[in-house]
Design a protein around this nucleic acid. Structure first.
Lengths: 253, 253
DNA sequence: TGTGCAAGGTAACATACGTAATTGAAGTCG
DNA sequence: CGACTTCAATTACGTATGTTACCTTGCACA
C-alpha cells in the first residue's frame, strides 16, 4: 500500500497534499492481471501510465523471428513510463511475471501534477533519470560483462531495488523469475544461464531454489558482478544507500 | 544554428516566445572542445545540462579493468540529459569524437521553462522518452542481434538521426567514428567490427571510406539490421518519417 | 618531403557461449 | 490420482566472436 509515496519519498520530501494526491491516484482505477500475460503490447496507442502496486512484470521487445529481449523489470512501486501518452505508439510490450495489480494514472493526473505539485514533478524526473541510468547499465552489462558478471550484476540490482521497496526479508527474497526469463534479460541462452547460476551457487554467492533467492553476502556478489551502485542514485537528501537495510531485518530461519 | 528549436519543432509547435527563449539559451554560455576529450566525467556533480551545437560526442561507461562501453551517441541538436542536475553525481562520462561546441543550460532555465512554457516541457519529455527508447533498442541489439545486424542497425539509427538534423547530403554523410568507437558501441572487438564492415561493404550495403559514409539503399540496410524505426518516434504531429528526406537532396557526384 | 603514429586491414588460433536433445522433478488441472 | 505441462539440469557438440600479432595506409606535422 502507498508504494508510490514510499518510493518517491526516497527522493523528495512530499507535502501532505502531495501525498493525498498520489495516494488517491494509486487507488482509483486499479486493475488486476494473472501471471504471464501482456499488459501492454507494442504498437498500441499509450493511454495511461501504469503504476505497479504488487507483483513483478517486465518490459520486452521482440524481433519478427521470435528473438526476444527483456529490457527492464518492474517491481512494486515502479512506474512504467512517466508521460508515455505523448508518444503515438508503444515501441515495446509489457508482460507480467506473477499476478500483478496496477493503477492507471491518467493524463489529467499528470497535468494536475505539472500545474501545481513541483515536488512530485521533480520526483518523477528522478524516477525517469534512474530508469534511464538502469537502462544504460544494462547496455554496459550486455556489451562488456561476461555471463557470470552479468548475472551477478542483475541479481544485485534486483536485490537492491527490492530492498529499497521493503521486499527483502533479511538475506532472502521472493524470486519468481525463471531461468528462461533470466536468459531473455541477460542475452544468454537458457543453458548458459543454468551453467552460470550453478557457478554462482558453487561459489556460495547465491542460494536459489524454488522461488526464493538468498544472498548470503551481498558484498561478494557485488564484487563478482563488478557492481557499482552509483547508477541507482539511491543516495539522496542525506539518505545512505544502506538506509533501507535496517539491522532489525533478520533471516527467517 | 538554432539546432535546438529545429529539433524540438519536430515534435511540438513552439510559440515565438518559446523559440526566442530557446535560441537565447543555446547561444549564451557556449563552450568549445577539441576532438577526443572528456566534457563530463563519471563521479562529478552535474551542474548544467549540455546541448550539442555542433560535432559528435558519446556517453560512455568504463569498468575498473578498462573495458569500456559507449552507451549513446550525441549528434548536433541533442541534449545530454534533461534535468540531470537533480542527481547528486554523474554515473557516466561524456567524451567528444570531433571538435564540439556545446551550450550549457542552467537549472534556472529549466525552472523558467517549467513555470511558463508547457510546450517546451512537453518537447523535453519527448526528447527524454525517445532517448530512453534508443537505449532500450541498444539493449535489444546487444542482447539479441548478431554482429552484422547490430552494425547495420546502428548505422541506420545514426543515419536517420543525422537526416532528421539535416546533416545528410543525398545518400552520404560525414562519419567521424573509428572502428574502435564502433567496437565500444556494439560490444564487439575491433577485429570483428572490421570483418563486419567488410561484409556490409561486400553486400553493397554501405560505402565507408575516410570519414564519409554512403548508404546507397537505406531500405536494404534496414532489412539487414532488422531495423524498425518506430522507436525513434519521428512520426509526430502529422509529420512522416521521410519528411526530412526531400527529393531535392542529391548525392554529391 | 620525410617521419611518426593512429587507424585500417588480415591471418592463425583460442574460447565463451549457443544448439539440440534428453531426463527428471515439480507443480497444476481434470 | 494420474496426465500434462513447465521448469531445471546435464551432455555432446558446434560456432560466432575474441585474442594476438603483424603489416599497411593515411595523414599530421616537423
Amino acid at each position: 500500500m502507498a508504494s508510490l509515496v514510499r518510493k518517491l519519498e526516497q527522493f523528495a520530501r512530499l507535502s501532505p497534499v502531495d501525498q493525498v494526491l498520489l495516494n488517491r491516484a494509486s487507488t482509483e482505477r486499479v486493475r488486476h492481471f494473472g501471471p504471464r500475460v501482456d499488459i501492454v503490447r507494442e504498437g498500441e496507442k499509450p493511454k495511461d501510465v501504469h503504476l505497479i502496486l504488487s507483483g513483478w512484470a517486465y518490459r520486452y521487445k521482440q524481433l519478427e523471428d521470435g528473438r526476444r529481449q527483456i529490457v527492464a523489470f518492474f517491481l512494486p512501486g515502479d512506474i512504467c513510463d512517466v508521460n508515455v501518452f505523448i508518444l503515438r505508439e508503444m515501441d515495446h510490450s509489457i508482460g507480467t511475471v506473477t499476478a500483478v495489480s496496477i493503477a492507471d494514472l491518467s493524463r489529467e493526473f499528470f497535468d494536475k501534477v505539472a500545474a501545481g505539485h513541483p515536488r512530485i514533478v521533480t520526483a518523477f524526473w528522478w524516477e525517469t533519470l534512474v530508469n534511464a541510468a538502469i537502462q544504460r547499465e544494462w547496455t554496459m552489462s550486455l556489451g562488456q560483462r561476461t555471463a557470470l558478471e552479468r548475472m551477478a550484476h542483475l541479481l544485485c540490482e534486483i536485490w537492491l531495488r527490492l530492498r529499497a521497496a521493503g521486499l527483502t526479508q533479511g538475506d532472502s527474497c521472493d524470486f519468481p523469475l525463471t531461468q528462461g526469463d533470466l536468459a531473455d534479460a541477460t542475452g544468454l541462452s537458457k543453458v548458459h544461464v543454468n551453467r552460470t547460476l550453478q557457478e554462482l551457487r558453487a561459489g556460495g554467492l547465491i542460494v536459489l531454489k524454488g522461488k526464493t533467492l538468498v544472498v548470503p553476502n551481498l558484498e561478494r556478489l557485488m564484487q563478482a558482478g563488478l557492481f557499482n551502485p552509483n547508477y541507482l542514485h539511491m543516495d539522496h537528501e542525506g539518505r545512505q544507500l544502506d538506509a533501507a537495510a535496517t539491522p532489525t531485518d533478520t533471516a527467517v530461519g
